[in-house]
Amino acid sequence: MKVFYYLVGRLILLLATLLAVSIAISAIMSLLPGDAAEQILGAWSERSGATLAALRTRLGIDQPWYVQYADWLQMAVRGDLGNSLALSVPITPILFDRLANTLLLAIPAALISIPLSLGLGVWGAVRKGRPIDHGISAVTLVGVSVPAFVLGPILIVVFSGYLQWFPSSSGLIQGSGATHLFLILALPVLTLTTESLAYIGRMVRASMIETLKSPYVRMARLKGLPERQVVLNHALRNSLLPTVTVIAFNIGWLIGGVVVVEQVFNYPGIGSLLLFAIEQRDLPLIQATVFVTAAAYCTANLLADIAYMALNPRLRN
């Protein structure tokens, strides 16, 4: 029963945080120099003050930011995220379309990198000091040090330029077949996977090394348990605890930090949508995009906390 109350509490906290986040965005964005009307009119905005004012009224951005926010909130809870100022179309469909695209990158990357990094991390920890561990450590170190916009181009040069296996740009076309989809997604997913793999792998290895030094692991060995059982049944479970937090953070990164990868590969995901929105000073679009991203990130953290509780009996009681 206590668990239930805890979950409800966390959910409320989540919603409160998101609310605070959206208010914060609104307030901050109101400080942006220039607004959507100026962006739309471009060079003409200086010429005709009347046209500018009329456009502002039509777009509804002549109101103070908190009024705009209240309106937005009203519609948002009903699922209507308003219209894009720059594109003059409803936001919700575009947003979720782009979100789906990003998830097409993030989910395969997560699915591949998480189990693989667990395996590598454990392997490196168990064989600490040996050549294979040095190898894994070196590779993961380089992996976290190479930024996405360095790795991406390198992959493009190798796989697209020389080997010509994949296209260098990943613009999605509606109704692409599965093979085409695979070709387009391959390099960006590979980039994301490599970064995640390196990051999580290092954390898993460090956590595992610590756990293997624990008194209860020592005791398990002194009870005569075979090493494999010691590692799997005793060490692994306990070192998963801190790893869960790391994985959650990484999923958040996969959703938020993917903006760079999308730029490198010209991929129409939610990150590039946000960049576009910022350039256009398209407040409703910015609001919606950031909100959805933050929501995904917070949800990932909440799931991590739940998993942490599930794995740690001390917290369950």
Binding site: V21, I25, M29, L31, L32, P33, I255, C298
Partner: peptide
Amino acid sequence: MDIVMAFPSLLLALLVVAVLG
């Protein structure tokens, strides 16, 4: 601090820099 950490770092930095220029 939690609210600030509710964003992936890059995203937040993006937003702040967009405001400040």
